[in-house]
Design a protein around this nucleic acid. Structure first.
Lengths: 204, 204
DNA sequence: CCGCAGCCGTGACACCTGTCATGGTCCGGT
DNA sequence: ACCGGACCATGACAGGTGTCACGGCTGCGG
């Protein structure tokens, strides 16, 4: 048991990564032992740097923070993960916790609280931003079915039904049915709106 | 002429704001004298804190970084502004420089270079991320007309033509004409796609 | 076995969209 | 005065879109 907590930083923006490192360096009991810019390098670097806690952003190339957290849980059981992201997407929170993350913090929180969150996570506690916890319960689970998610994700690009159908290897009519169902579940009236709403709620 | 450069930080995410402050505090010749979370508070706080350089994020409530930079130029002629944002949108760069910003840096750049950029801007030089400069010249100016921009911005939400027409106080037919024109200029085939592309290029 | 839910597909229908032609107004430049 | 360009509007048309009804398929639990 070392007296300092070894932290791994994962964020695709080098500037924020360096800035967070500078911020955590102010705390005497924390030590940033690795910095990563891609989600698929987290496990490897966490192992070789013997990190205790992984600070993961959600938006990253290679693999997003949620799948990275799941990978860490499977490969390195003793290591805790703390998701830190830009805005509170309820679906993200739910999936993150199911995927094995120990904490979920928004970038809106005061800087001082980050170090405290790291300590709590390292102690084995769950840290969840209170502003998100309630919001997440209100929205509940993702009502979208697997295919609806897939179709909606492609629909985000904005192409026509025929284009979507070609990508997902389905009939154009079936795509329209899935889209119609998704539109109903999101309470919208066009597929562009449905895709946007679903994206906002973290249903994709 | 004080020996230290007085810096104002503007970013809506408290965590990055604090982290950037910690990062800049490592430099002995820089001093963070103010932190702001909204774009419309920049001028006021810059004046009362007698800042030399304003570090502005683009996405902020109240007013975005570009209009904030323009406001600073008009109200406080001696103060330099440096835009720092997530990803390089060519249109943003152009508008930022036209609006009076002295520099444009991406959050992807190494952390060490930020302090150097602040010094350069303070010295009266223009700092532009080299990866964006070329890209910006390739794309050229924004081909969209004023109304097309307005209509496309509303179309981003994904509503129907009638809904858009109601918001911008135009006839539904006129809205369709503007959308059609924008679709042509973006080389797309649906308004959702056009809105997405225009957004990516910073044309909105 | 049966019912049920999710998935895939077809067909039909009303409506919305994207495109084009046409015509009008209001500028700013020649 | 003339022209060009941006703006607004209307009408018409082909094609895309959203909705619904229907059928068939699979897998799961009663």
């Amino acid at each position: 048991m070392s007296t300092t907590i070894r932290v791994l930083l994962a964020d695709d923006q080098a500037l924020v990564r360096g800035a967070l490192a500078a911020l955590l360096a102010l705390e005497s009991d924390l030590e940033v032992v690795a910095e990563v810019g891609r989600g698929d390098e987290v496990v490897e670097r966490a192992r070789e740097s013997r990190a205790d806690v992984c600070l993961l952003d959600i938006e990253m190339p290679g693999a997003d923070g949620i799948t990275a957290a799941a990978a860490v849980r499977d490969a390195l059981p003793g290591v805790r993960t703390l998701i830190v992201t830009t805005f509170g997407r309820p679906g993200y929170l739910r999936r993150a916790l199911e995927g094995g993350a120990s904490g979920f913090v928004v970038k809106d929180t005061p800087a001082r609280q980050l170090a405290e969150a790291v300590r709590r996570v390292h102690a084995g506690l769950r840290v969840v931003d209170p502003s998100l916890a309630t919001e997440s319960l209100v929205d509940g689970a993702n009502p979208l079915t697997e295919r609806e998610r897939e179709v909606l994700t492609v629909a985000l690009a904005g192409g026509t039904v025929a284009a979507i159908a070609a990508v997902v290897h389905l009939s154009a009519g079936t795509v329209r049915n899935h889209l119609s169902s998704a539109i109903g579940k999101t309470g919208t009236s066009t597929r562009a709106e449905a895709a946007r709403v679903a994206q906002e709620r973290g249903w994709l």
